[in-house]
Nucleic acid binder design. Structure first.
Length: 115
DNA sequence: GCTTTGACGTATG
DNA sequence: TCATACGCCAAAG
């Protein structure tokens, strides 16, 4: 477990309940812009015992990244809906549940990264 | 070492 | 909305 991984896990864990974030947003929040794939790969490697709201991570389009119909796909739909997030055709309307822009900063609390 | 393979993203048409 | 192209880079073989 290196530092990048730790920051990514932290970013995922920071997604508020009832909201979702994209892989790219997670990577950026972890200080790794442009490395969305790393986030995806990490989730794929995440052990079963790991407690993380992995299901709150979606593609930038709002689509669930897992293969439709797969076990994980159904599980993700179930967990998302359990939080009141609307899932239709394997997709979530980011316009209402996504973290972006001001809401992003408000919820994740990063005014301007003042060093 | 080199190549392939992704739970991805942005740009373009 | 769909397709294609390109960028990204850690593992697996």
């Amino acid at each position: 477990m290196n530092n990048d991984h730790a920051r990514i896990y932290a970013a995922i864990a920071a997604i508020p309940r009832g909201r979702v974030a994209s892989y790219g947003a997670i990577a950026a929040r972890a200080g790794l812009p442009g490395r969305a794939r790393l986030v995806g790969r990490l989730l794929g490697e995440t052990p079963d015992g790991m407690v993380l709201p992995w299901y709150r991570v979606l593609r930038a389009s709002g689509q669930i990244a897992l293969p439709p119909g797969s076990r994980g796909f159904r599980e993700q739909c179930r967990l998302l809906r359990a939080e009141g997030i609307e899932v239709r055709d394997g997709r979530v309307p980011l316009s209402r549940f996504g973290l972006d822009g001001d809401l992003d900063r408000a919820l994740w609390g990063l005014p301007d990264e003042s060093p």
